[in-house]
Amino acid sequence: MEICVNAPSMFPSVFMPRPLDSHKGTFGTLAIIGGSQGMSGAIVLASTAAVYTGCGKVWAGFHQKTLPMPIIAQHPEIMLACAHELLIREDISAWVTGCGLGLDEDAVIVLEKVLSKSMNAPLLLDADALTLLSQRPQLSTLAQQHSHLILTPHPTEAARLLGISTADIQADRHSAVKAIAQKYQATVVLKGHHSLVYAFDNDTLYTNHSGNPGLATAGSGDVLSGVIGALCAQGIDNWQATCAGVWLHGAAADYLASQIGGEIGLLSSELPHAVRYIRNRAIQQRK
């Protein structure tokens, strides 16, 4: 297995200037499903990250019986729906599921429907969706049949997926990310210090060196999911979108730390603005 450092040269499609005749339909429609009762912030963070990463249209699908808010006040560009309403749409370019989804029986039903609905589109699973995969064999089987799957576990979620301990994951992170990718025929991000990216059909492991301890804060993973999902919706292939999302996420944290004089108190809600800046700056530098 070859090991490389994740860097912008690996994902040139992310830094291409936009055509002059672009419109919102050019850059895809992302559906993000999660945000159960008491966890609305997770899906708001992911959706905000998606719009700042340049997605044409973003739907936030709350796993609640009624919407917890009529609009996201700071970002009315994000369209809101209950999860079951999004699951009947036919115009979704990519899906993200799991951010604050919950672990109840209704969440199982929602995830099963998402897995079935999205078979021909990129699908990123994070957080509660990963825990449900580890607990429910029927969901794991469906996920293994998906042809465009991205998984973004932290070490404890990775341990659940493989049925081993978190200590085992941390003792051999390289083998762990490869095992998950092969088990689910997926592109996998194993989050943590120097996050790892590995795809089942590419025996090259990418280690990411952007980022800092400021990312160790609630909601950081939700932002990463929104960034990767947005890039997938824009038509960037899963591999480039995943590598780019991980790098941009870390680079945004590095930029913010340089602006605030350190890493303490960095907020997840600040990351999307920095992701937008980093991506636009890189495009301008390539012109």
Rank of each mutant, 00 (worst) to 15 (best):
V58N: 02
W95K: 10
G102A: 01
C55E: 03
Y52R: 05
N120C: 10
F62E: 00
M119Y: 12
L124K: 08
L103E: 09
E85Y: 11
T66P: 05
A127F: 04
Y52W: 13
C82N: 15
V96L: 15
Q64G: 04
E112I: 01
L111I: 02
V114I: 15
D106C: 07
P70L: 10
R89A: 08
W59C: 01
Q74K: 15
K113F: 03
T97P: 05
N120D: 14
D104Q: 10
K117S: 13
W95Q: 05
F62T: 03
V110R: 01
A94G: 11
A60N: 05
L101F: 02
L86M: 13
V96I: 14
Y52T: 00
W59Y: 14
P122S: 13
P68Y: 03
N120Q: 14
P68G: 11
P70T: 15
W95Y: 15
V58F: 05
H63R: 07
M119R: 15
A127V: 07
M69S: 11
A107T: 06
I92T: 04
E105A: 10
D106Q: 08
M119H: 13
L87M: 15
S93Q: 10
L86N: 11
C82H: 08
S93V: 07
K57S: 14
P122D: 11
C99F: 10
W59L: 15
L111P: 00
